[in-house]
Nucleic acid binder design. Structure first.
Length: 297
DNA sequence: TACCTGGATGATAGAAGCCC
DNA sequence: GGGCTTCTATCATCCAGGTA
C-alpha cells in the first residue's frame, strides 16, 4: 500500500519535470503502475500456491528485477482474455494451467476528492467486466470460466468517510435502504460484498488507504512524513486534516485479504501440479516473498 | 519512426435536490 | 432564491503495444 502512494507521487513528479501538468490526481494515474505492487503480491501468492511462474501473467513493478514471469514493467499477451461485448480485455493478473486461464483478477483504485463523480462509473465497470467474461465463456471464446477476483482500493479520508443520505431522486421505485446514510467507503463495501455474494466475482477484496502526503505539496515531501494541511477547502475546511500513511480493510471477515488469498490459493492448488521436478522455475522461488502485512512498514 | 488502438481513471459540465 | 451537494454522462490525457 505504501508503494501504491510512492508510485503515484513519482509519476506526478516525473510529469512535472517534463513540463506536463494534468489537473488534480490525474498526473499520478495516467502514468500507470500504481497497482503493480498489488499485482506482484497476488502473483506471488499464486506461485506460492503452486502455479508455474511462467504461467502467471502480471505487470511487474519496474524495480522488481528478479521477476521470472515477464520483464519488469512490460506487458505480456497472457494478460488479455477475449470479451463478448468487446473484442478483448486486459486483466491485471492472469494465471494459466493446462493451456487455459484458471485465474483472472481485476484491480481498481479511486482517490478523492471527487468520489461522488466516479463511484457509479467504477461499479458499472466492475459489473460489466465480469458479465462480459462470463458471456465470452458461454459463447465458447474460452474453454471454461476462470476464478475471477476483484480488488478495490479507495482513499481513506474525510470525504470518503462522510455519511450521506444522498439526494432523494425523483424515481418511481425506492432505492435499496442499505444505501441510506452511507459513505463512499460504505458503498465500496456493499459493492464488493454483493459482487461476491451474487457470484458476479468468485471473491473480492476491499481496502481503504490513507494518503501519506499532501496533494498540494507531495512533489517535495517524503511519503514517510505526517503532514498537516488544508487539503479540503469547502466541506471539510474546518477540520484539522493530517496526512499519515495507513490502511484498513473495509470488511475483514467477508471481503478481506485472508479470505481472498485463501480462495485464490485453493483454486490454484486445485489446477496446478505441485511436482517440483518438472518446474525448475519453482526451485528458485523465494518463499519469503512479501505479503500485504509485510509491506505495512 | 510515426501513427493508431486499448486501457485506466480522474476531471468537467450540467441537471436536480436540499437547506437555510 | 441562492448556494451547496449529489449524481450522471461524457471527456481528457497519459502510457504501452502493435503495425505499417
Amino acid at each position: 500500500m505504501r508503494s501504491f502512494w510512492e508510485v503515484r507521487s513519482k509519476a506526478r513528479d516525473a510529469q512535472t519535470s517534463r513540463g506536463v501538468a494534468e489537473p488534480g490526481e490525474r498526473a499520478g494515474v495516467t502514468a500507470g503502475g500504481h497497482l503493480d505492487h498489488v499485482a506482484h503480491m497476488l502473483a506471488n501468492a499464486c506461485i506460492a500456491a503452486g502455479a508455474a511462474p511462467t504461467n502467471v501473467y502480471y505487470k511487474a513493478p519496474k524495480e522488481v528485477t528478479d521477476s521470472s514471469v515477464v520483464a519488469p514493467g512490460s506487458i505480456s499477451p497472457g494478460f488479455t482474455l477475449p470479451g463478448f461485448y468487446r473484442p478483448t480485455k486486459m486483466w491485471d493478473v492472469v494465471v494459466r494451467a493446462n493451456k487455459r486461464p484458471i485465474v483472472a483478477i481485476e484491480l481498481k483504485s479511486q482517490l478523492g476528492p471527487s468520489f461522488g463523480n466516479n463511484a457509479n462509473n467504477r461499479a458499472e465497470e466492475a459489473i460489466g467486466t465480469a458479465t462480459d467474461l462470463a458471456k465470452a465463456v458461454k459463447n465458447g471464446l474460452l474453454p471454461e470460466m476462470p476464478w475471477i477476483g476483484y480488488v478495490y482500493v479507495i482513499e481513506d479520508d474525510p470525504a470518503s468517510n462522510e455519511k450521506s443520505s444522498g439526494k432523494r431522486d425523483r424515481i418511481l421505485h425506492p432505492k435499496d435502504e442499505i444505501f441510506n446514510k452511507t459513505s463512499y467507503q460504505d458503498r465500496v463495501r456493499i459493492l464488493c460484498r454483493r459482487l461476491k455474494e451474487e457470484r458476479v466475482y468468485d471473491n473480492t477484496w476491499a481496502i481503504a488507504t490513507k494518503r501519506p502526503y499532501c496533494p498540494n505539496e507531495h512533489a517535495t515531501k517524503s511519503v514517510k512524513e505526517s503532514t498537516p494541511c488544508s487539503y479540503f477547502t469547502k466541506k471539510f475546511k474546518d477540520r484539522n486534516h493530517v496526512h499519515e500513511f495507513g490502511f484498513k480493510e473495509l470488511d475483514q471477515e467477508l471481503i478481506g485479504y485472508s479470505g481472498f488469498i485463501d480462495s485464490l490459493t485453493a483454486v490454484v492448488r486445485h489446477h496446478c501440479s505441485l511436482d517440483r521436478k518438472e518446474n525448475h522455475f519453482r526451485e528458485n522461488w523465494d518463499p519469503r516473498a512479501p505479503t500485504l502485512y509485510d509491506q505495512t512498514e
